[in-house]
Design a protein around this nucleic acid. Structure first.
Lengths: 229, 229
DNA sequence: CGGTAGGTTGACGTCCCTCAAGTATTGTGG
DNA sequence: CCACAATACTTGAGGGACGTCAACCTACCG
């Protein structure tokens, strides 16, 4: 699998790399791994020398409290970069887990960062990647801080819709392979309450479930719920 | 005021800059502004060509929902860098406001980033600044997502304690110039409930108020409440 | 002295959690 | 193809955490 012909290259952080830089990137690729749904892609301590790029599928990072509760921090999709060792502050347990089956390219972290630093264009991409990342985190903070459960779930669905649109799909049918448990852990409510909310959103025709992994979204109604979206 | 002799230089993102790089940084400094407590330091749209470094005092970034609710996103202190234009996703209202009187160095954003990009050492500092920033955001997400109000407030106090310790102070008396309203908006509860919680923390001797702007913290008891801290 | 900003307290309502029972849907081996 | 288990989802009743509203207190500042 060559980076030059990679189908997700346009979404990756090295999208602006020249062919020769791309060869360097490929040179520090240590593995291309397949993970089954639910498997641990990385944890907070081990593999700290690696950085991953999602080649296909979806994954999410999470943190654990010592009473067993789990908080989903963010979702990753094709082209997204994952920094396992940096995810967890101050000894907190956590990791990155495959939401669906997924394929991940693993790079040597230090080499990878050196390559980025060596090219002005790559540094620029990296900067704007971080600004984007920051925006996403800030939006999630608002979601958790001042939105009630319905607004937060709607906002989560909206984020999936938007990210899918960014990647070209213009339809209202989105890939949303989250179980109720994932929704609950992402917005900070219980699985049962997440179920009730999905149900009411469905009854109000905001969303329609199309199999376990897809949603049909009424974008207008969704925006009514999450005003600032 | 010369950057070379700046007392907060060691906390700033350009701490690893050589003297000549520092002169460049100073060359793109457009102003050194003083803000009174409560004043708007920057908003989400205007001044997008600037980046600020807090020279003294405390500030916070916030977002507004159109129903008037306000969510505090993060706090900034001496040496922290503030990117006003990048703070707000997708047209959301918001800004950066002075929590106490504060002094802010304003730099031209593009020039500033160019200087950073031109030096390998500065790029490295910038990278680790972002990793730190990410960690902080992730911790806050956990705070808001799965902590109850008491745990969240304790965690907020803990974050202030930690950041003060990082800057040398080893005492249990911390600068905490937040009104109940700030606490409420930071952890996503109401002012009144924030007051009740501060009261119970005080009654349990976890904290003691020492004037309006200072707290004396029992670190051990605090850690009992926020287990993962 | 009054005005203002900030903090406290109580009663009551709502949102969300908990527990428990039940119904799809999916997966697996015969 | 069925039997059966495991996983995922739904529904209801009762409780706790947090919000709302209104009154009152305190410190500070002119």
């Amino acid at each position: 699998m060559n980076c030059r012909s990679c189908k997700i290259r346009e979404f990756a952080i090295y999208q602006s790399a020249t062919e020769s830089e791309l060869d360097q990137v490929m040179g520090c690729r240590k593995a291309m791994l397949t993970f089954k749904k639910g498997q641990l892609v990385a944890d907070g301590v081990k593999n700290s020398q690696f950085v991953g790029t999602i080649y296909s599928g979806l994954a999410f990072s999470f943190a654990l409290l010592n009473d067993g509760r789990r908080q989903i921090i963010s979702f990753y999709r094709e082209g997204d970069i994952v920094f396992p060792p940096e995810i967890f502050a101050r000894g907190m347990q956590g990791g990155v887990r495959a939401l669906t089956d997924c394929v991940v390219c693993q790079f040597d972290k230090n080499q990878f960062l050196e390559i980025i630093k060596s090219s002005n264009a790559l540094v620029s991409s990296y900067f704007s990647y971080w600004f984007d990342c920051k925006k996403t985190y800030e939006e999630r903070l608002i979601q958790l801080g001042m939105l009630n459960a319905e607004e937060a779930v709607a906002s989560l669905v909206g984020a999936f819709l938007r990210r899918q649109r960014e990647r070209g799909g213009m339809e209202n049918r989105i890939t949303f392979p989250l179980r109720l448990g994932h929704i609950a852990e992402a917005v900070g409510i219980t699985e049962i309450h997440a179920g009730r909310i999905m149900r009411t959103l469905e009854k109000r025709d905001v969303i329609k479930r199309d199999g376990p992994d897809h949603l049909i979204v009424d974008e207008y109604l969704l925006q009514q719920i999450v005003q600032f979206l």
